[in-house]
Structures are given as structure tokens and as C-alpha cells.
Design a protein around this nucleic acid. Sequence first.
RNA 1: GGAGUGUUAGCUCAGUUGGUUUAGAGCACCGCCUUGACAGGGCGGGGGUCGUUGGUUCGAAUCCAAUACACUCCACCA
Length: 905
Amino acid sequence: MSDISKGATPDNSSQEGGISSQYDPISVEDKWYQYWLDHQFFHATPKAGKESYTIVIPPPNVTGVLHMGHMLNNTIQDVLIRKARMEGKEACWVPGTDHASIATEAKVVKMLREKGIRKSDLSRDEFMKHAWEWKEKYGGIILEQLKKLGASCDWDRTGFTMDPNYHDAVIKQFIDLYNKGYIYRGLRMVNWDTEAQTTISNEEVIYNDEGEQAILYHVRYQIKGSEETLVIATQRPETIMGDSAVAVNPKDERFSHLIGQTALVPFIGREIPIIGDEYVELDFSTGCLKVTPAHDPNDYEIGLRHNLKVIDTINLDGTLNEKCEMEKFVGKDRFAVKKQIVKDLKEADLLVKEENFVTKIGRSERTNSVVEPKLSLQWFIRMKDISKKAHQAVMEDDIQLFPSKFKNTYNHWMENVRDWCISRQLWWGQRIPAYYYGDGEEDFVVASDLTEAVKLAKEKTGNSNLNEQDLKQDDDVLDTWASSNLWPIATFDGFNDACFDKATGKIDKSKNPELDFFYPTQTLVTAPEILFFWVARMVIAGYEYLDEKPFENVYLTGIVRDKQRRKMSKSLGNSPDPLDLIRQYGADGVRTGMLFSSPAGNDLLFDEKLCEQGRNFSNKIWNAFRLVKGWKTVEVEQPAINKQAIEWFEGKYNQALTEIEDHFSKFRMSDALMTVYKLVWTDFCSWYLEWVKPPYGDPIDQTTYEASVRLFEGVLKLLHPFMPFITEELWHQFKNREEKEALIVSEWPTAGSYDKECLKQADLLFETTSAIRNVRSSKGISPKEVFELHTQAPFVKEVEGSLKKLANLSEVHNSQEKPANAFSFVIGSDEFHIPASEKIDTEAEKKKLQEELNYTIGFMKSVSKKLANERFVNNAPENVVATERKKLADAEAKIKTLEDSIAAL
RNA sequence: GGAGUGUUAGCUCAGUUGGUUUAGAGCACCGCCUUGACAGGGCGGGGGUCGUUGGUUCGAAUCCAAUACACUCCACCA
């Protein structure tokens, strides 16, 4: 065998005196990643007649850094894409990043603040300049990190949701949906983040699970023209000045007489009606509810029903305004006012009671400030109609979710889908293409640019004197998800002028070769948390613009948690640094570590030990390679036992591959990996290699050597999607190969048939081997001590040579006589005896056999009980009864054998 | 409050339309082995009345019901 150190391109490292007994990933990984890049193996292009397999990456935040969730998610995608590539498909994995408007803007604002610059001192353009600089500097770090993991993305396609053509697509979508009537502008109660000064979606409001301690203030209101008072309960006394009514349940006999009367708002004495509304619960607290339409979503609804005034007393920054009619509060923060007004109420003897109360306060995911419900003019998408096909597609399994339990969740959301507020009061993002020419509610046009807007405004108003100065573009940008929803389409430039028809609002795929070839994509791998945020909205866009689903399968990964089931997070500091892990265990080790414990849809309880297991696996493979590579060959006839071993492993391989394919088809990645793991470790290393391994220093016959390399290569193929680096390395260490023969683009094997009898026979061989090893182990006999074996088991004749080698036997006697002073065991109904060199402990042997006998008798009894049951024999299917009869016969035979063995002792 | 999912070995999970031994795997654990590929290893071993209680059935980890616990999603009471 040639010097392994000059094996393949690129140069392979070696140590003096041979190959290191430990696999060193560091020296291998960068080299192969660069090799793959250099040879364009990740790059995909439309190819006539070839099947495509496309995955679009869930674009991470552009300024994000790699965390464990990304590691899991992207490992899975890479496994899928590498397998598809080997299967001969045009495998295209589109990478990219999301501009993530709120998160990124927050980071930029923070960075500016550290430099002493306030956002409010900057113009929009100036701010954007800073933001872009920031993006250029820090953006995409995460993509570089993914390369360390081995991600085989088509980097030529790297996208960004604010790329010019992507931006263009988003704007086209907005205009189109507006023209189709799906987008409207309306006054709505939104979640207002007073700190970030923006609306946030319901999904971005976080409620603490345990709730938060709050106080429920019982406040007395005077009734006009009466001595009577009523007591309302509120958490938010600072909103009293915005009250428009007091509501009671009309069925509430305590208060129904008050309906129609007038109450007076404390301090300011404003008159408000007392109304009856079913919304008020009879048995909650005082039964009287103050209605403040401007500051509570439910109150707003009540207000609509009763035509109440909306008195908005709180400014955008959370301070009170002059509408509260109390000068001393104007300009003061809502929380300061709350404190003061409680004090005032107490002094005025209007505070009846303070009750401790656990409530769930909504806080902003980004700023953690208490969300203020606020009425405001916002842009919305009407969801009901536009989402119909998307709903149907999943319910009818046209798009399959893995695991399927998420179908329920999806259904529930779709059935209760609510209009989606898409405007955000931020600068970083796609600015809403609406242009205002007046203060009226309808005084605007929606247009792709200012010139177009002027044109439309002229048409709409009939005023031909309007010019660019008369128009002012909306200050808000779009919710990030309103752009990332186009990800599978826009990354293939699906909205370019050639294929997107503005008049019909449809995309003609046939006019865009890229989209035509790669869309719909095959599999989306993402977190269940964003099933609605993102997945559902991509499906909606897919049907809206292409009348076609965006992907066939959605694989939902679990959340990565620590051993204590806590979610991994920066703030808890319980998340390891992924790159650190890769340095320590190798990318292959980390990848397999992640997948070992990641059954579909279940959370992954991450433990560094898993990476260790992955690393150990790499090492195992490495050492198997060292063994095979170290063999010297000789031209002699192939021994029969080697032939047997090869035939067996070929069968085992096909069996495993069949299983692996089944697992993949169900997205059971963990199970697929485990099957490969066992095939490699147990079957290939522990059995096959030991089976054919020549004695130390002896050469191996050429035929077996070649077969072993071939089998090893077959194993490397199955391993490659999971462990791309070590497999590519070994692939080239075995042979010099041209670039087109690289493992990454080698042909994925097809499962052939296998002889079940052959596998069964080998199982008996292994069982016997284990039993013999057990004799040595339990008797404290060295594994090196050679045994003789006496047995009449029929299968032994077929595998005698193999058994002798695996179990270290000198002789196998097929004689009827039982040797005296021997260790005995029974497999099936066959006896095995090993003559002992020293006097054996007969009692101990008897005891051992007796235990097995007891077990078998117990088993036999349960079977015969079943068979004695007439109803079982009559009702159970024939084959089941036959199986039971066979079990009984086998057990009886075994019992007899055991009894004989015991008697012989 | 509504909906959903789960509960099998110390841990993480398989167990495919009820019937291949009296329930499996990986890891962890225990014992022995400085074995000529690998101590990041080898060989061997122990470990579960399948959450609980009823029911259906000749037969239940598997189907049904109730119950307990855990988790997830949605909505949310001043």
C-alpha cells in the first residue's frame, strides 16, 4: 500500500510513523470546505431534465450571531440538501439574511447612543446611512459561521430582504394587495411600545406565564343628582380621565336600575353614561366596569357598541396629554401619574379598597416596556379571504407538516385569523409606498415611486397642478414578516418585470427560468414558533402570486434547551458558543451530536456530552480507516469466512439502507442517523472488521481487501450527509480521485435486496459468539484463552470457520457425547459445551441453567395458557395461532435441552 | 378560559393497522480488560408490573372512558 500521506488532493496530513490514532478535525475541515467551494459543488443552476431539490434558509437576522437553534436547524437542512445532491438532484440551498427591522434598528439606535448620537437628532436619511454602514460591517457574520458547520449553501445566491430587487418585490406586493383591496388603512387598537415608539404585533407581546403582581383599585364614582355612588375596579387609575362610561351587566340586579343614569368622573367631574353591556361579568370584583375606549381593546369594542367618545389621554411616549383635563398630570409619565392619582384618590376618600391581584401584563418582546393599547391609524391586511387556499393546502396535506401535530395548530390559527397590522413606526425597512396629499382619510395614493404617485394623485383629485412637493410619503415601514413572506419567491427574483404582471397581480413562472426550475421548493426547515409569523404567510403569498405552494414539506424543529429544559438564551447564559463546540469536537461531531437527540418536533435537550459522542464516533470511523488502510495485501485465494463476512455485510448494508430511506421519507433524522451509527459501529467495526481482520502483521488477501474498501466507501456515502468532512477526507485517502469523483457529488446508493436467511444465520453466529465471550468474562478467563466447543447445532456447520475466529475457538466438535466438566449454554434448543481446563463450579453452572430454565418454563406456561384458551384458538387469525404453537414447541425443546444439561452436571 | 400533545429503563426516545419471545435503542451506570485500528476503545452485565383506574377484546404499551401530571398554542376579566 502506498504512503497514505500523499493520498489525494488536497494534501492530507499525516504523522510520523503512521496516522494519528485520533482524528483531528481542525486540519481537515477548512481544507474540504474550500475544496467544495472551489469546485462549485454548492452552486445550482436550472438544468433541463434534472429534478430540483430546493431549500430556502430561514433567513437569520442580518446582525445576528450563530446560536444553537441555528446549528440544529441548519444541520438538518444540510443533511437534506447533501443527500438530495448525492441522489443526483439539482440541489439548491438558498442562504441569506433578514433585515429584521425592529431588532436591527434597536441595535443601531443603541450603537448610536453609545457614540452620543440620538436617533431623534438625525434625519431619516442620515439614520439610514448609519444603519447601512452597520449592516455592511456586521451583517452576514452569521453566514460565515455557517460555513464552519459545513453548510453547503449556494452562496452565489445569498439574498437579503432589502436587496434592491427584493425591496422592489415587497413594494410591488404592497401595491398589488392594496389594489386588490386586501390592504386598508384603519383606526385600530394596536399594541404600542412607548419606548421604541412603534406598534408591535400581538405575537411580539410577551405575557409572563406566572403573571405579575398588580393592584386592583376600587374607586368610588358619584352618580349625578343622587347620593348614591358606585364602585368600579381598575388596574389603571391613571386612565380614569379617559373614561367614557361606566358599564354594568344588564342582568345584574344590584345595578340595573342605574342604567341610563349619569356618573361623574372623579376629580374632573365629567359626565359619563352608565350603560348595560353583557361583557361585564357578574361575579368579577365589584361588577362595575369603567369604560375607557382609548386605552383598552375591550373597552374600545364596548365603545363601538354604545357609540362612546374616545378620549385619548396618553401620548406616544407614555406621558399624559391635556385631554386628561388635569394640568398637573400633563407631560408626566403614565406610571408616575398612577402613583400620584392613587394618592389623590386616597386623600379624597374615593379609594375604597386596594386588592392584590395577579394579572398578565403584556410587555414588548424587544424593549420589555409595558405595552400600551392605543388607537391609531395603521395599515392592515385583510386575512380572511387571502388565506383560504393556504389554509386548505395544509388541511389537505398538499403541504405536509412534520410532525403532523402542528396541523391542528395551523388549523386553529387559520380559522381564527385576524387582520394583520403591517405598519411599523421605524425607519429601517421597506417604507410604505403611500403618498399623502392632504389630511383627509382618503387623501393618499399608493404608488411605486414619487413620480407615479404624482400621476395617480392628479388622477384621483383631478387637480393637475399637484407636484412632488405636495406629496408626502408615509413615514412607517413594513413589518418584517411582510417582506420575508416573499422569501421563496423573491430570492429567485419572482417579481421582476418579465414575469410579474401588475395588471393581474400574478407571476408567470414560465417567464422566469430560475423560478420555474426551483419553485416550489421541497422542504422548509424552521421553528414552530414562527409557523404563523412566517410559514403561513409564505404559503399565502405562494398561492396569491403563483397559485402554487411555496414548499412541499415543512419540517418543524424543536427548541434547543439546556438539560434543565430551560430555553437557551443569551440572558440566561446557558448557551454554549457553537464555534467553540466546533473547535472542540469538530463540525461532524457537533452535527451528529445535535441530531442524536433530536427526534422530529421534540425539543432538543442539549448536552455537550452529545457532541462528545459525535466526536467519538468520528474517531471510531477514523480508526476503522486506519485498520483497513494499514493492511498489506497478498495474492492468495480468498478464505471462505471472508467471503461469508462480505456477503453478510452487503446484506446488512442493504437492510440498513432500506431503513434509512424509510426514516428520511418521514423526516426522522435522528432515527436515520442512529441506523447509520449502528451500521458503522456495531455491524461494520465490531463484526465485519473483526471477522475479516488478519492476525497482526499478516497480510490480507487482495479480494477481501478490495471488498472491504468498497464496503467502507459504501458506508462513507451513507455517513456523508451527516458527517461531510471526515467522510470526504477518508474518501480521498483511500484513492486519488478527480474532482468530479468527490464524495459530495458521488452517487447515493440504492437499497438492493438482501437474504434474510443469511442475516438470520449471522445473528445466531453472533449470539453464539457473545455467549462464549460471556463464559470467559463471567469466569474471569482471559479473552486470549482458546476454547474448544462441542455442539450439534445445525447452523454451526455453516459458519464454523467464522465462529472459530470470532469466538477464538481452536476446535468445534460435532459429537453427541457431552464433555465432562464443561461450561454449558443453550441457544434456541441447541446445547453448547466448552470443556474447562480446571474443575468447574457445578453448582454455579446448575444455578445459571436453572434460572434460564425457570424463565423458559414461565414463558412456556404463558404461551400454553393462551393456546389452551378455546376462544383464542377459534378467534385469532390462523397465522397468529401457528406462531404461538411454534413458540410453544420451541420453548418445550429448549426446556428439554436445559433439563438434559442440568442433569448432565 | 379554549384547543392540542404527551406520560414506556437514571436520561432522551422507538415501539408502524391490537398478537415474532415475559417490551427495545442510544447515552449514562456497574464489573473485567494498558488486547497490535480505536481507553475518545474492547468484552460482559444490571435496569422498566409501559402515569393511575376502569372498560372493550380470546388477547392492550397499543383501542375507549375517566383521572392525575407535564408541556405547547390561542384568547384573556376591569
